[in-house]
């Protein structure tokens, strides 16, 4: 009797917080106010304030989470609408994804090495630019800690979404094509959700790059580990 009531309450409160944060973001478009980040902060503060555990939150949260799968499937629609332009630019897409994947993995390894991070943590950071479900499997396959990988994947997502546009301005990435490929391959699905602010072409470039990055990452993750003798 009580369980469904709590679940519905959690769902409604999360949606209400999200919609309010969308309004805030429309009013003040600072990158740090991106709704997915502000709403996450509100949820965490709410859980801490009322001493609710994460597993209790997930009684309702799992229903929202269940929509993530069909939403990823829905990315096929903009992808289909933009199919001709994707085929036309397949070379820059593949090249960009490769560049981003290797830059991300190798720089991650170097930083971890400099800071003297333990091996299992290094292996957990490696797939950070890849969408969560695939990153978990890559980390597990390499001998990392999958639950830690989830956190690194989120940090990669948030940092790309919040400061990515500024980096793009610095290195003069001006095209929707370049921005989309960069968002998708460095910041996976979170980057793709940010790409919606730039239009359908950017979204499609981002979702195709995200998918390609996941495929190539699962193949080349072990190769990078082998080359660098982690």
């Amino acid at each position: 009797m009580q369980q469904p009531f709590i679940a519905i309450l959690i769902i409604l409160l999360t949606i209400a917080a999200y919609l309010a944060m969308v309004k805030v973001y429309q009013r003040f478009t600072y990158p740090i106010l991106i709704p997915v980040l502000t709403t996450t902060v509100i949820v965490i503060l709410g859980l801490l304030a009322f001493h609710i555990s994460y597993s209790d939150y997930m009684v309702g949260g799992k229903w929202i989470n269940a929509l993530l799968g069909p939403a990823v499937v829905a990315l096929a629609y903009p992808l289909y609408n933009q199919r001709h332009i994707i085929m036309k630019y397949s070379f820059p897409i593949i090249g960009g994804v490769f560049a981003g994947l290797f830059t991300g993995m190798i720089s991650g390894l170097l930083f971890a090495e400099v800071f003297g991070i333990k091996r299992d943590l290094i292996l957990s950071i490696l797939p950070k630019s890849i969408t969560t479900p695939v990153a978990i499997q890559i980390a597990a396959g390499l001998g990392g800690v999958p639950s830690m990988t989830v956190v690194f994947v989120m940090i990669a997502g948030f940092s790309g979404v919040i400061l990515g546009p500024r980096i793009m301005k610095w290195v003069r990435i001006r095209s929707h094509l370049g921005k989309g490929i960069a968002f998708g391959s460095a910041s996976h699905a979170l980057g793709t959700s940010k790409a919606f602010e730039y239009g359908e072409l950017t979204v499609s470039m981002s979702s195709v790059s995200m998918t390609l990055c996941a495929l190539l990452g699962s193949v080349f993750g072990p190769v990078v580990v082998w080359i660098f003798q982690v």
Partner: peptide, 21 residues
């Protein structure tokens, strides 16, 4: 480190894909 590494990836990806176009 994760954030800086992500910025490098953003720059490398965007830069090289635009060059390839």
């Amino acid at each position: 480190s994760t954030a800086v590494s992500t910025f490098l990836a953003v720059a490398a990806t965007g830069w090289s894909s635009e060059r390839l176009v």
